[in-house]
Simulated scan of single mutants.
Amino acid sequence: MPPRWPRKPTREDPAYRRLEDRINFAVHVAAFIAVNSGLWFFHTLNPAWVGWVQWFTLAWLPLLVGNGVYIFAIADYSPAPLSPVESTDPGDA
């Protein structure tokens, strides 16, 4: 059974935004592993076919690490301060 979110999910909710960012990072890690393992497998079979595989991995890995550092160390998931909202009630004028 999938987990349920106790309230309506929005990007303004800090807890939901944190969870969404971490799930997104997990999907990116899975894609990195799947694509790179496939490329390295074919590179092992025929090194001339994918000679650029090491450059591809070395280009993607720092982006993935940077994304992880941002999500786990830099991102601020504290609640945003409430902005003043103008009244739409015609009796307030």
Rank of each mutant, 00 (worst) to 15 (best):
L64M: 04
F41V: 03
V85I: 06
V85M: 15
G66C: 02
P81W: 02
R18D: 11
R11H: 06
R7S: 11
R11V: 15
G66P: 02
W40C: 05
D92N: 08
P6G: 06
A59I: 15
N24K: 10
P79Y: 02
I71H: 00
S83V: 10
V29G: 01
Q54M: 05
I71D: 00
F72E: 12
T57W: 05
S37F: 08
F25P: 04
E12I: 03
R7V: 13
A26C: 07
W52V: 03
K8G: 05
L82C: 04
P81Y: 06
P90F: 00
V69K: 10
N46T: 11
L64W: 03
W5L: 06
P90Y: 00
Y70K: 11
L45C: 09
I23T: 09
A48T: 14
P14I: 15
R17D: 12
L63G: 06
E12K: 12
R4L: 03
R7E: 10
R17M: 09
L61G: 05
P90A: 00
I23H: 15
L63D: 00
F56S: 11
R11S: 13
N67F: 13
P84R: 13
T44K: 10
R18W: 06
F41S: 05
L45K: 03
Y16I: 07
M1A: 14
P90G: 00
W49H: 08
L58G: 10
P3N: 13
V69P: 01
I71C: 01
W60K: 05
F42D: 02
N46F: 14
A73R: 11
A59N: 02
F25L: 09
A31S: 07
G66W: 04
F32I: 00
L63V: 02
R7H: 11
N67S: 04
S37H: 05
F56C: 08
N46E: 10
S83N: 09
L82N: 13
V50A: 12
Y70D: 10
R4D: 09
Y16G: 10
F41E: 07
Y70G: 05
V50T: 06
V65Y: 09
S78Y: 08
S78C: 09
W5V: 00
Y70M: 07
F25A: 02
P81F: 04
K8A: 07
A34E: 04
G38I: 04
P90R: 00
F25H: 12
V69L: 09
G51C: 12
P81E: 02
L61R: 02
G68N: 01
L19M: 10
G68R: 01
F25D: 00
P90E: 00
L19Y: 14
G68S: 03
V53N: 09
G91I: 14
A15W: 08
G51W: 13
T88A: 15
P79I: 01
F56V: 00
L39D: 07
Q54R: 15
L19Q: 05
P9A: 07
P6S: 07
A15H: 04
M1G: 10
P47K: 10
A31K: 08
A30P: 13
L63M: 07
I33D: 08
A93Y: 10
D21G: 09
Q54K: 14
D21C: 13
L64F: 08
R17A: 15
S87R: 03
A15K: 01
I23R: 14
Q54H: 15
P81D: 07
T88C: 14
S37D: 06
F56P: 06
R7Q: 08
G68P: 01
V69R: 11
V50G: 05
R4Q: 10
V85L: 15
N46H: 10
